[in-house]
Design a protein around this nucleic acid. Structure first.
Length: 323
DNA sequence: ACCTGTCAAGTCTGG
DNA sequence: CCAGACTTGACAGGT
């Protein structure tokens, strides 16, 4: 089975290449000349997009084919104060260049809209703004001319002291999500509220692929359900007909005291038992490395894996894990 | 050069 | 019912 590793947003190996430079609302409002402020936002976005392309080139040159964009590419995009401004028109060439590189090199890319994106909130305005945030991410993928294989991942949402009701509300609100957003959606188990089993059931109901997060599963699972083995087959089944390998997130706990936080690197001992389980399905997967050291953590993990007899290194971000 | 406080968005806790 | 924590990277302002 083939495993492709990817990383998130920025590359530690590159200097001054942040794709997440920003301007806060407060800073924006302090600039008296509104048009100048909007132009400054656009310049920041241009820099973020240029740096995203640099990071993509670096990933590709390193043999990495899976990458998640920063969700802060355009500061204040979607905020009321910028509603009159045509960011996408202004940034057309930058988005097109990224999309062309992704298509030419067959990179698999995604977005993770921030944790304020909640489709199951009891507050209608929160749901509406969440759908708006998802539409803006769809706009950006469309500006890149990338098809629906370029996915979003979000969490199920809040628990609101009634998980069952909150899950029902997710399903009800799903009817109001535009088709172009639904087509790109995937859902991930979280570290506090919605376990892998909860998330899988919801994904089956709304016919959406499930991203399995191994670290979140360690933090949050039903009593006696710490072994994900029995869930793997139905989780992988949610990816059928997408033309994509299932996606898995990995990270290691920072320490015992701060178990849910992400460590700098991936501890191979956290991942190897999982790879052994996946091997039984002989299933190709993409694994997103979510570690403080970003691409460096990926490369460090690859160095470790390359020493194992069951691993054949294909390139800098890909292994064949063989029986 | 380095340290500290602040920042769009929501939810949850605990006082 | 409200203040603060949660959590991440970036940045301004201070030293």
């Amino acid at each position: 089975m083939r495993v492709r590793f990817g990383f998130v947003a920025m590359a530690m190996s590159l200097k001054n290449a942040s794709p997440s430079q920003t301007m806060t609302l407060k800073q924006f409002l302090q600039i008296a000349d509104r048009d100048a402020a909007l132009r400054k936002l656009t310049r920041i976005a241009q820099s973020n997009l240029a740096n995203s392309l640099r990071v993509l080139r670096h990933a590709h040159a390193s043999g990495v084919h899976v990458y998640r964009f920063s969700s802060k590419l355009i500061p204040l995009f979607g905020h009321d104060v910028t509603s009159s401004w045509d960011f996408l028109g202004q940034l057309r060439e930058e988005f097109a260049a990224i999309g062309q590189f992704v298509r030419d090199k067959s990179m698999r890319v995604s977005f993770h809209p921030e944790h304020f994106t909640l489709l199951n909130s009891p507050d209608r305005t929160v749901v509406d703004s969440s759908i708006g945030a998802l539409e803006r991410h769809a706009d950006m993928f469309e500006a890149m001319e990338l098809d629906v294989q370029s996915k979003f991942v979000i969490h199920v949402g809040g628990g609101y002291k009634n998980k069952g009701g909150a899950l029902d509300r997710f399903v009800a609100n799903w009817a109001n999500v535009p088709a172009r957003v639904k087509a790109r959606m995937t859902l991930e188990n979280d570290d506090k509220t919605y376990s892998a089993a909860d998330t899988l059931t919801l994904c089956q109901t709304v016919e959406t692929p499930m991203v399995f997060d191994l670290h979140h599963h360690m933090c949050n699972h039903e009593d006696g359900q710490g072994d994900v083995g029995p869930l793997l087959k139905p989780i992988f089944a949610t990816w059928e007909n997408t033309g994509l390998p299932p996606k898995v997130h990995i990270s290691s706990p920072k320490d015992d005291k701060d178990f849910r936080a992400h460590a700098e690197l991936i501890n191979p001992a956290d991942v190897l038992p999982f790879l052994e389980q996946v091997r039984e399905f002989n299933q190709d997967i993409d694994i997103m490395v979510e570690a403080k050291y970003k691409d460096e953590a990926l490369f460090e993990l690859m160095r470790h894996l390359s020493s194992l007899p069951q691993v054949k290194v294909v390139d800098g971000g890909t292994i064949d894990y063989s029986p």
